[in-house]
Amino acid sequence: MDVFMKGLSKAKEGVVAAAEKTKQGVAEAAGKTKEGVLYVGSKTKEGVVHGVATVAEKTKEQVTNVGGAVVTGVTAVAQKTVEGAGSIAAATGFVKKDQLGKNEEGAPQEGILEDMPVDPDNEAYEMPSEEGYQDYEPEA
């Protein structure tokens, strides 16, 4: 019985440690998101679009440190934060509304985080759909 109880105690310690790591990862992701939003706020009209992409990228980098179902929630929060940063930029006159959601080359930025393969159960990952990809044929 002692062996059984000791095993359960060790398992509990492992769960607590994993929860603490997840909590730490979420806190880091939130900190990076805040950094990115402050970065966007300090940019001029020309830099705002690039700044919004930076927020998304920093958040995406930190999301990889967070495991399990938390990833889905962090990704949703990050996307809403990026959308909010863009709205703030438009409201303050840093950028025109028609410039939001495009990178410096004018290509749409939507789907940055949505296409990231995420499995809350950590069982399997699927690649994003290939609808947006084109076949590449090298020139002879």
Rank of each mutant, 00 (worst) to 15 (best):
V55E: 00
E137N: 09
P108Q: 10
K32H: 04
E20Q: 10
K102S: 14
F4K: 00
V77D: 04
E114A: 12
H50V: 10
E28T: 05
I112P: 05
T22Q: 01
Y39H: 06
E20F: 15
K12M: 06
P138Y: 13
G93D: 09
K43I: 12
I88L: 09
A53C: 03
T75L: 14
A11S: 01
T44M: 12
Q99V: 13
Y133N: 13
L38P: 00
A69W: 12
S129F: 13
K32T: 04
A90Y: 09
P120G: 06
Y39V: 06
A56K: 06
K80R: 05
E61Q: 15
N103V: 13
A91F: 15
A17W: 14
A19D: 01
A56C: 15
A90C: 14
F4A: 01
T22S: 09
A140R: 12
T81M: 09
G36L: 02
S42W: 15
D98S: 08
K12N: 01
V74A: 10
V37H: 00
S129L: 15
K32E: 00
V95Y: 08
T59V: 03
A107V: 05
G132P: 07
G51S: 12
Q99M: 12
Y125L: 12
A90K: 10
A11D: 00
K58M: 14
Q79M: 03
V26C: 04
T92L: 08
G73E: 03
E137I: 11
P108G: 11
A11T: 07
A76V: 10
K34E: 14
G41M: 10
A91Y: 11
S129A: 11
M127S: 09
M5S: 04
G25L: 13
D121M: 06
V49P: 03
V40S: 00
G14Q: 09
F94V: 06
E57R: 04
H50N: 13
P117W: 03
T59G: 05
V71S: 03
G68S: 09
K10F: 00
V40T: 03
E46R: 00
N122R: 09
K97V: 14
G93N: 07
I88Y: 11
K32N: 03
E139L: 13
Y39T: 12
Y133A: 10
K32D: 01
V55A: 10
K32S: 15
V48K: 01
A27D: 03
T92R: 01
T64W: 07
V40W: 00
E61T: 08
T81W: 09
E110T: 10
K6P: 00
G106N: 10
M1T: 00
L8C: 01
E61W: 02
E123I: 13
M116P: 13
A78V: 07
G106I: 05
E35A: 06
Y125F: 14
P120Q: 05
K6L: 03
E83G: 08
E130G: 06
A107M: 03
K58V: 14
L38T: 05
V3E: 01
I112Q: 12
G47T: 12
P117T: 11
Y133H: 02
S9F: 14
G67P: 05
V71W: 11
A91R: 01
M5R: 03
